[in-house]
Computed example of a mutant assay.
Amino acid sequence: MQVASHRRGKPVGPSVLSRAAITVAAATAAMLTASGGADALPGPSGGGAGPGAGSGSPEDVRRQVDALYAQAEAAGQRADSAQEQERALLHKAALLQQELAEEQERANVLADRLGAMASAEYQRGGGMDPVVQLLFSAHPGDYLSRAASLAEADSRTGDELERLHAVERELQQGRVEALQQYAELEQLRRSIAAGKAEAQRRLGRAQALLGTLTAGQRDQLQQQEDAAAQLAAQAAGAALPPGEGPASAGAALALAAARSAVGMPYVYGATGPGAFDCSGLMYWAWRHGGVALPRTSQEQAFAGRRVPLSEARPGDLVIYYGDMHHVGMYAGNGMIIHAPYPGARVRYESVRDMPAVAVVRV
């Protein structure tokens, strides 16, 4: 049974974070994960503890499950980022392959032209001058590097040969670049697989923790979550105070799209229309508002102008946690719409239920 989680953090307003500070925070989180530090769950006093640590009360289990959900979502966002890089690199590699094919065609044309010139030279009975003989050399590049100049050849033959040599150099450089791109692609694919595996591992641990509760305790947690979600939906649906509506027509359209997604399931890497992850929901909703946002929550944190949480307007992006691994859309009246975590559905929640670090007006 999937028990929902409040994921409540200390209510804080947005802090002014520099790109450098955010990069350090994200890198630190990644290092902790790689070293096993992020596997340590917070115990009752805030220290590390494994599954089943602490009192084992429903609140204690929920707190540990919250930490695992947050870590799983952070891993999912890293996988999303790697997938975006993979798509960009695949596009770049396709363009490079096209360029290589065009360069190869140029080389073939030049070689054919020089072959015809060599044949004509031979048929005239004059033999072949030293430059034309390069056509039949196993390593014409070596010959050219040793030649002081092309003065011994007629101008037309020398120019053609130099063009061929230049094209061959470009082809060689292109092949080296292609090999580097394929190596980078392989590294990105390993990163994607690792991120997804890490997310699934943490979700499995969360489910194991929830399994330590009795059916009655799980039902109680679910009832609390359902009641909170209902209250949040009622608050979000109330009339907005004058002057506190969406800041633009695009924001109004994005908000309407996000509202239409309430109840849809969370799925890693999904961008709608039937399922979403947290940043995928923002990406999809703002496409309806006429804006192509970046794909991940970390990138979306820099997709517009920062405003204080106290001045948030419906449609604004609210970025959460120090490594910015979660994002929701402000819906007005102190509520957000977001895709919380796997197993949950898109829903309304208080804007202060998690630690907000930035509000972005697109």
Results as ranks from 00 to 15, higher is better:
Arg169Thr: 12
Gly243Phe: 09
Ala72Thr: 07
Ala285Gln: 04
Leu114Val: 11
Asp226Ile: 12
Arg62Gln: 15
Tyr69Phe: 11
His338Arg: 09
Val167Cys: 03
Gly36Leu: 04
Ala183Asp: 15
Pro246Val: 07
Asp39Cys: 07
Met329Leu: 12
Glu162Ala: 14
Ala303Glu: 03
Ala197Leu: 07
Ser15Val: 14
Thr296Met: 03
Ala20Leu: 10
Gly328Leu: 05
Phe136Ile: 01
Leu309Asp: 01
Val131Glu: 00
Lys196Pro: 00
Ala233Gly: 14
Pro11Cys: 09
Gly50Leu: 13
Ala74Thr: 05
Leu188Glu: 04
Trp284Thr: 04
Gln83Cys: 00
Gln220Val: 04
Leu255Ile: 04
Leu293Cys: 07
Ala356Phe: 06
Pro140Gly: 03
Ala301His: 05
Gly304Trp: 02
Thr212Val: 06
Leu281Lys: 02
Gly76Gln: 01
Gly250Met: 08
Gly56Lys: 12
Pro130Gln: 09
His325Thr: 06
Glu225Tyr: 15
Val12Tyr: 02
Asp39His: 11
Asn333Trp: 06
Pro265Thr: 11
Gln187Asn: 10
Ala261Arg: 07
Met335Trp: 02
Leu293Asn: 02
Ala344Ser: 15
Met31Asp: 14
Ala251Phe: 05
Ile336Cys: 10
Arg345Trp: 11
Val346Gln: 04
Ala208His: 04
Pro273Ile: 09
Phe276Arg: 05
Ala344Ile: 06
Ala238Trp: 10
Pro265Leu: 11
Ser15Cys: 10
Ser15Ile: 13
Pro241Asn: 11
Ala258Lys: 01
Gly48His: 12
Ala166Gly: 09
Glu86Leu: 06
Leu281Gln: 07
Pro11Arg: 11
Ser350Asn: 13
Leu144Asn: 03
Ala72Ser: 13
Gln222Cys: 02
Arg205Val: 13
Ala239Asp: 14
Gly289Asp: 05
Ala27Thr: 14
Leu213Asn: 05
Val262Trp: 01
Glu59Thr: 12
Pro44Leu: 11
His338Ala: 08
Ile336Trp: 01
Leu210Asp: 07
Thr23Gln: 10
Ser149Phe: 02
Pro314Ser: 09
Glu84Asn: 02
Asp80Pro: 00
Ser279Asn: 05
Ala208Asp: 10
Ala275Asp: 09
Pro44Gln: 13
Pro265Ala: 12
Val357Gln: 07
Leu150Asp: 03
Gly328Pro: 03
Ser55Trp: 09
Glu186Trp: 06
Arg347Gln: 15
Gln77Leu: 01
Met335Glu: 13
Glu184Ile: 01
Gly280Asp: 05
Ala79Cys: 00
Leu213Pro: 06
Tyr341Gln: 14
Gly9Lys: 10
Ala70Tyr: 00
Gln224Tyr: 07
Ala197Thr: 13
